[in-house]
Amino acid sequence: MAELIKVGMADYKVGSNPASLISYGLGSCVGIALYDPVTKIGGLAHIMLPDSTQARSSDNPAKFADTCLPIMLEDMLKGGAAKKRITAKIAGGAQMFTFANATDIMRVGERNSEAVRVVLKQLDLRMVAEDTGGNYGRTVELNLTNGIFRIKTIDKGEKEL
């Protein structure tokens, strides 16, 4: 049984074959899976907010899209991954509750997904698949043996990216 590494909210983990990285119950948060298919090194981040410059204070860079992805990428490169081979898959960014007048804070899922796309582009990482939006939670698992990013939901089925 391969090791299953849990990634909590506002956290990221890097691992290598044959482990799997899993994050449970993403709502408006976004899960970002980076994977190098040759060295089979991968990382999974569970970010909560788009932008660290708009927040008041934090000791935790893993909370934000703009600060988490560069350090996760750095860790992967230190472990031997090659940047040009790394691909990204993202999931989450849902809006869990619907109000008639959706304020900015209710649309944070959408803003998270958008911020992640922008940061990936800035880092020059290729995004190959995404499953974002909707109004339901997702559990995401990155299999480091084959790079498959599996997304489980309560009643919207399961899919593999």
């Binding site: 709502g27 408006s28 008041r56 000791d59």
Partner: peptide
């Protein structure tokens, strides 16, 4: 109180709504 909203889903996903708001201010 505002009008209530309902969701049936994973606890983490539902709690993320309030945790994200708090996350803007601290950890």
């Amino acid at each position: 109180p505002s009008i209530p909203a309902l969701a049936m889903d994973m606890a983490g996903a539902i709690l993320s709504v309030i945790l994200i708001q708090l996350g803007q201010m601290g950890d």
